[in-house]
Structure formats: structure tokens, C-alpha cells
Amino acid sequence: MTLRELPHRHAARILRLNLDASETLWLRALGLAEGAAVEVLRAGLLGGPLQVRVGGHVAFAIDRAVAGAIDVEPAP
């Protein structure tokens, strides 16, 4: 499942980033690294970005295309 498909307000962990090397590095630097806890809080209007809480404290606006390239494992 990708971050884009993850139901809102459902805890998950990042499994893999399917982006090119420099983008992967950048996302990891932001805290969106493999193993990080994520939770989609809400989606922006008209196909806008997702608001995602990362690591319990920081929230990011993440473009849906980028979210679609992040594999996650939902918590049971």
C-alpha cells in the first residue's frame, strides 16, 4: 500500500521510497525515512496535497504524486 492509499488517521510505517536517488535522500533528511511512523491527517481540496504527520510530531504537506511513491505498512 502507498501513503496515498492509506486511510486517514490510520498509523503506518514507511517501508520504501520509490523515488530517484536525490529525492530519496532529501525525503529521508526531512524525516520521511524507512521505518518512520506516518499518519495521514487530511487531504487538500481538488487533488491537493496530503497532510501527513511524521514521527509523531512534525506535519508535512506531501504532494499526492510523491505520496504515491512511498510504500507503507499500516499498523494492524
Binding site: 520521511l32 496535497p49 497532510q51 512534525v58 508535512f60 504537506a61 504532494d63
Partner: peptide
């Protein structure tokens, strides 16, 4: 740039 923007507290 991929859009990933921090939304600070």
C-alpha cells in the same frame, strides 16, 4: 522540486 512542505506547529 517534489512538494513536501513542513507544516510547523
Amino acid at each position: 522540486l517534489p512538494l513536501v512542505l513542513e507544516m510547523p506547529s
